[in-house]
């Protein structure tokens, strides 16, 4: 953004947001390379602009309720490890806004996105400007080791959001990459459960070939999409519940060299999966209604 555009964003923020939220946006910390961007291309003003738009969905559409904020470290590196669901990856956006609003000082959640997203014009740009990065190992090193950021990683990957209505709230097997990163960079893991995302866009089927032609892993079929065109992509207003679990400090028990032991890494990944599945089950029991 140009300096004039940035000023316009902050004027908009002051006009449209409550004082507390505007203050939080202005106080966000990141490693500025000198022009108001970090090396990944994150820009505070782009985040603020996205927040102005997405705040409506967080507060009034999904009416997100979060629990266990005390489990998220106030500073330093941390891996947030949630389940991934909902056909359209809105769950990350809700977690990012939730952490921004409830953790002091406000932290930018750095989402790890799939490789294909980087190739998409505009979408790739929005991803980088608002704080997410492509899931390359070197990117983890920079985020965790050098910058000490809050990284949100979905170990289910795109399998999670594409698993279909029949398998809702049943986790697909976690990839092990996040355990390797946690051990290598001595980072605590916060297991996280997201309830409500599965119902936002129940997936009936998916068209893999058509999706690949568009540069996507698949094209989802939901009750509203493609029936109502682009409008059909608007998710249903299910209520979101986000639970942050007790941090897991595997790095205290195992040395970084433990990542060379594939059995151990697999075992730890399965252990985290079990914890997240338990949190989901408890959350589902506690939930009284999908929409209210």
């Amino acid at each position: 953004m140009t300096p004039q555009q940035r000023e316009a964003v902050w004027r908009l923020v002051d006009r449209l947001l409550p004082k507390e939220e505007a203050k939080r946006l202005k106080n966000m910390n990141f490693v500025d390379e000198g022009f108001g961007y970090d090396v990944f291309g994150f820009e505070k003003e782009s985040f603020a602009l996205a927040y102005l738009f997405l705040r409506f969905f967080y507060k009034y559409w999904f009416r997100v309720r979060g629990y266990g904020y005390e489990n998220v470290p106030r500073k330093g590196k941390v891996l947030i490890v949630p389940n991934h669901s909902g056909t359209i990856p809105v769950d990350f956006i809700m977690i990012a806004i939730d952490l921004f609003l409830h953790v002091n000082p406000p932290r930018v959640a750095r989402g790890i996105v799939d490789h294909f997203a980087g190739a998409l014009p505009y979408i790739g740009l929005i991803i980088y400007r608002t704080g997410s990065v492509i899931g390359a190992r070197k990117n983890f090193e920079v985020l965790l080791q050098r910058h000490g950021e809050t990284v949100v990683v979905f170990p289910e990957g795109t399998r999670g959001i594409g698993k279909g209505w029949a398998n809702r709230y049943k986790l697909t097997r976690f990839n092990v990459g996040f355990i390797e990163m946690a051990l290598k960079y001595r980072t605590p893991i916060v297991p996280t459960a997201v309830i409500g995302a599965e119902e936002q866009a129940p997936q009936i089927a998916k068209l893999t070939t058509v999706g690949k032609l568009l540069g996507l892993p698949y094209l989802p079929i939901t009750p509203t999409f493609p029936l109502f065109g682009v409008l059909g992509l608007i998710p249903l207003p299910s209520r979101y519940y986000i639970y942050y679990g007790t941090p897991l400090h595997y790095y205290k028990a195992y040395k970084p060299s433990a990542i060379k032991d594939p059995v151990l890494v697999r075992q730890l990944a399965d252990e985290v999966q079990g914890i997240v599945q338990d949190m989901i089950n408890k959350g589902l029991k506690r939930r009284k209604s999908v929409f209210f």
């Binding site: 492509i134 390359a136 920079v142």
Partner: peptide, 12 residues
């Protein structure tokens, strides 16, 4: 590539 890490070290 689109998924190349943002920072490239000498081993890239």
């Amino acid at each position: 590539r689109p998924h190349t890490p943002v920072l490239l070290d000498e081993e890239a």
